[in-house]
Design a protein around this nucleic acid. Sequence first.
DNA 1: CGTAGGTTTGACTGATCTCAAGTTTGGTGG
DNA 2: CCACCAAACTTGAGATCAGTCAAACCTACG
Lengths: 241, 241
Amino acid sequence: MPSADAAFELLICKLERLTRLTDADRAALQELPSKIEIFAADQLLVREGDRPADCCLLLGGYACRYKMTEAGDRQIVSFHMAGDLLDIQHLMLERADHSIATVTQAEVCWVPAANVKALLQARPAINEALWRDALIDASIFREWVLNVGRRSATSRIAHMLCELATRREAAGLGAPEASDLPLTRQQIAQATGLSTVHVTRVLGDLSNQRVLTPPDCPIRIIDWERMCQVGEFNGLYLHAA
Amino acid sequence: MPSADAAFELLICKLERLTRLTDADRAALQELPSKIEIFAADQLLVREGDRPADCCLLLGGYACRYKMTEAGDRQIVSFHMAGDLLDIQHLMLERADHSIATVTQAEVCWVPAANVKALLQARPAINEALWRDALIDASIFREWVLNVGRRSATSRIAHMLCELATRREAAGLGAPEASDLPLTRQQIAQATGLSTVHVTRVLGDLSNQRVLTPPDCPIRIIDWERMCQVGEFNGLYLHAA
DNA sequence: CGTAGGTTTGACTGATCTCAAGTTTGGTGG
DNA sequence: CCACCAAACTTGAGATCAGTCAAACCTACG
């Protein structure tokens, strides 16, 4: 069970990658009330239409945001990993316009939204860090619109995997070519707007070309260069330092 | 030529739809330095990779943000209309991760980014209003990922047109069924991830079903109910009051 | 009046989807 | 430890939505 101290350590670490914090900022963060909880894979954290009262910090594992069509098809709109703030939007917007769920088993830290919101006014540096974080989030959504709208199935999948691996590295979770990406074909399909069957075929191709690990292993990028080429991946939109 | 006064009137109006402003807030906004400029259709306002020093407020006409694939295909990621702030993201992020261009002739008001950023610290209500604005932007991007990723060509186009008409109404530019939408088939194709040819066919169908104006007229929604059904449109994600 | 850009139409192509039947995997209880 | 089950994955065959190509048709504008 992760401790609250470790949680704020992670958060401070994340915010310091976005801006410079003072000791007072760090202290203010550490004094936030918090509640830690562990979820199994595929559990709902926030439901579309809710009015969440808590802000959710992901401590470990993976999560995603998604929306549904009327026909019941799921579109994943982003993936998240340790250190990510899953719902700054609910600080300022009444109702959740999308759902949030775990992808793998995950540890989560809940902080009352009102307390975080108070920090935005009281601590300019924290305001700035969270602004940056929210704007980078939006930049990633823009890239996803491009990815899903204009690229071939193969590029799309490659691009998405490159993004995840790059963000893992930026979050200090290991180099791209050393990161297992814990996604099922269904989840990849839901994130890229493809069918599960087609994802299977494309991943098979990428494995045959020795760009990805074989189909029966956890997904990992073997040939980073080639993968970036295939996915037209250029990480500038992630605005990492 | 629109005046600077009118420009700030528009901005204040927009921000007051997002939060309550004090007289001091309004005064601070009115004192911002500004420069007004008129652009023809299809002119670049911000180029991907730039480090914009000014923040851009759209006073009249339409604009869009877009990204390009390596093959040179353009994906429009959002449309904008009078009152929209086109690049709050450049207050906090160094380099533009996308380009911004006019769609029609447009009047634009430039405000130095540094001055706007100063207001975020000095005036909590303005900070909050711009936070809301940025988060709604992000919500729209999420909806676009769903739209482009999961819906049929017809739903996709219908949804996008419904969004535009709804936002026009929210911005005080006229009821949905009274709004001509000044988009070419190419622009619709670039926004929905479709080919121009296919957009022509789909718009033809929608006209035949008396949901849209005929092909030789400006695009306008005739049957709002039907159009919303076709596009699975539910405007909650726009977070308008 | 000639040119350019946008639009329309038809014929053909192809990437991706759907359906359906296996196969593997991981977890669970006997 | 094994048998069983559910869920995920794989594979093939056929269907379809949307793309490409190409030619003709507008319309605006110089």
